[in-house]
Design a protein around this nucleic acid. Structure first.
Lengths: 281, 281
DNA sequence: TCTGTGAGTTCTGTTAAACGGAACATAGAT
DNA sequence: ATCTATGTTCCGTTTAACAGAACTCACAGA
C-alpha cells in the first residue's frame, strides 16, 4: 500500500494539520502581500509556499472568487484584492480609537510639520494604526501603517513599555529577546531608556532605530495606568533638539489628555481591559 | 439511517460547496469587519452567518491563531486582527501607483486645504486607495480608504467612467444599474454628467451624492486612453465655485501629468493592461 | 443557597471538501 | 518548428472540517 509521504507535506510546513484552511489562506495572502507591487504567478506561489500546483491553483481561484485576491488574466498574475481595505479600515478603529485620535494626529502633524503616528498595543507588540505625514519637505517615515515592532523599539513602543510595571517589563524583555535581535539595542540600553523615559515623561529615540531619524512618543493610559496606545512624532535628529523637543512632548501630552477623556467616556471597564490585552494569546 | 439535513446547511448558504474554506473565512471576516469597533462574540457570529456554533468556534480560533483575528479573553470578543493592515498596505501599492501618487496627493491637500483622494479602477468599480485630509477646518470626507463605488458615482469614479468609450460606458451602465440604485442619480442624469465631464475636461459632482459636499476629479489615463485611476478633491459646495474650481482642476491635471509620466516609465505594456483590467472577472 | 438559562468549550463519528498526482493544454523561448 | 515551463482539468483518495450532543461555567433571579 502506498502511503502519502509525510516528509515535506505542505500542511505540516504550516501548522501541523490544525486549521489548515486558515493556515493556507494566511500563507498565500502573505505571499501576495509580500509581492503586491508586481503580483505573483501560480508557480511563484508554489515555490514560496511549498504548496502543490493544484492546491495553490484552487486556493488562488477561491480567493479571487471572493475578491480577496485580484487576478489579471493577461499576465496571469495574482494581487492582494482591494476588498482587504474594507477589513483593514475596520481593524484600525477598534473601540473607536482611531476616530477619536484622528483629529489629534492631524493637528500635531499640521503644527509641527513632521510625521505623526498612532500606535496600538497588541500583546507584546506595537502596531502602527495610522500615520499622518506633515508638510516638512524632508519626510522621515519611520513606520508604515500595519508595521509591527516589539514593545520598546521606537519611541511610541518605548513609551508604552515604560508605562508598564517592572514585572511586566521584565517578562516582556525575557519573552521578546529574540524578536528584538534584529534591532541594534541591547537589553541594557533598553533598561536605561526606560528609566530615562519614566523620569522625563516622554520617550525619545534619537537615531538608535533608524540612523538620522529621531522619534518622540507618549503613551495613552487608561485610568488604571495601563498603556493601550501611543502617539509619536518622527523627524530628523536636528529638528528634535531640546527646546522644540519639550514643546512637542507637551503638545502630544495635551492631545492625549483630550483623547483619553473622550475615550474613557465611551468605555466600560471590561471593554477597556479588552483593548489592553486584546490577543495576548 | 439518520442523514444530515441538506436544507439550510450553512455551506450552501455561502457558495454551493466550492471554495468553502475561503467562503467561510470571507464570511466571518466580513462580520468581524462590520462590527470592528466593539467586537463580536461567538454567538453573534453564529447568528449573523448561520454557521453552527462548532464551525464558528473552530474558524474563529483558527483566525486568531494566525492573527487574522484578535481575541479578548475577558470579554470573549473577537476583532479584526491588525495583521490585516500588513496585507492592505501592500494592496494599495499595486504597480507602485500609491508610491508615485502619494506626494501629489499631499501637495494638493496642502495647497487647497481640502481632502484629496486616490481612486483606482477595479472592474466596474472604483476603490478608494488613499486619502489625505487637508487642513481646512470643515472636514468633508466623502470616502474612506477601502470604500467602493460603482463607476460614475462620485467625481473620481465619474471621471474614469467618462474616459471610457461609449460602448463600454453603455455596458457598465447596463450591468451596474442595480448597484447604483442606492444612489439618487438616474441613468439619464449620469449620461448628462458624462457629457459635461467630457466637454469641460474634469468631473464635478455638486451635492448629488452627498448633500452639501462637492467633489471634483480627473482621471489618470494610460497612453492608450484607458483610465486606471483618478484623483479627486472634496470640499463644501461653496468652496468649489467657478474661479477656484478651475484652479483646482488645473492643479490636479498637472499632478496627474507628472504621475503618468513616471508611471509609464516603470510599466511594460502587459503590466499596464493588467492594472486596467485587474479582476474584471 | 439553590436553580435555571445562555454562552462557550470539548468530544466523537461521519462526510464531503480539499487533497496530490497525472494527464492535458497553452504560451514563450530557442 | 520544437522544447520547456507554466497553467488547467480530471479523478480516486483521504483527512480536515463538519454537526450534534454532552459538558462546564458564569451569572441572575428566587
Amino acid at each position: 500500500m502506498r502511503r502519502t509521504k509525510p516528509e515535506t507535506s505542505p500542511r505540516s510546513a504550516v501548522d501541523g494539520g490544525l486549521h489548515q484552511s486558515v493556515a493556507r489562506i494566511d500563507l498565500v495572502m502573505g505571499v501576495l502581500a509580500a509581492n503586491a507591487e508586481h503580483g505573483v504567478r501560480l508557480m511563484d506561489v508554489c515555490r514560496e509556499t511549498g504548496l502543490s500546483k493544484t492546491a495553490a491553483h484552487r486556493l488562488l481561484h477561491g480567493l479571487a472568487a471572493y475578491r480577496l485576491a485580484d487576478f489579471d488574466e493577461r499576465s496571469s498574475r495574482y494581487f492582494v484584492g482591494y476588498k482587504i481595505f474594507g477589513w483593514a479600515s475596520g481593524a484600525g478603529n477598534r473601540f473607536g480609537l482611531l476616530r477619536m485620535a484622528g483629529p489629534s494626529l492631524a493637528r500635531l502633524a499640521d503644527r509641527f510639520g513632521d510625521a505623526v503616528y498612532l500606535l496600538v498595543r497588541n500583546g507584546d507588540e506595537a502596531v502602527c494604526v495610522e500615520l499622518v505625514a506633515g508638510a516638512f519637505p524632508i519626510k522621515t517615515l519611520a513606520l508604515r501603517v500595519g508595521d509591527r515592532r516589539p514593545l520598546g523599539i521606537g519611541a511610541g513602543a518605548l513609551a508604552m513599555l515604560s508605562a508598564l510595571s517592572d514585572p511586566v517589563v521584565e517578562r516582556i524583555l525575557k519573552d521578546g529577546a529574540k524578536n528584538r535581535a534584529s534591532f541594534a539595542i541591547s537589553d541594557l540600553d533598553l533598561r536605561s531608556l526606560i528609566r530615562k523615559t519614566r523620569s522625563q515623561g516622554y520617550a525619545l529615540v534619537d537615531g538608535a532605530v533608524i540612523r538620522g531619524i529621531a522619534t518622540l512618543g507618549l503613551p495613552l493610559l487608561l485610568d488604571d495606568g495601563a498603556p493601550i496606545a501611543a502617539i509619536s512624532l518622527s523627524t530628523t535628529q536636528d529638528r528634535l533638539r531640546p527646546p522644540r523637543r519639550q514643546e512637542i512632548a507637551d503638545a502630544i501630552r495635551a492631545e492625549i489628555a483630550g483623547i483619553s477623556r473622550e475615550f474613557e467616556l465611551g468605555l466600560t471597564a471590561s471593554n477597556a481591559a479588552a483593548l489592553v490585552r486584546s490577543s495576548v494569546g
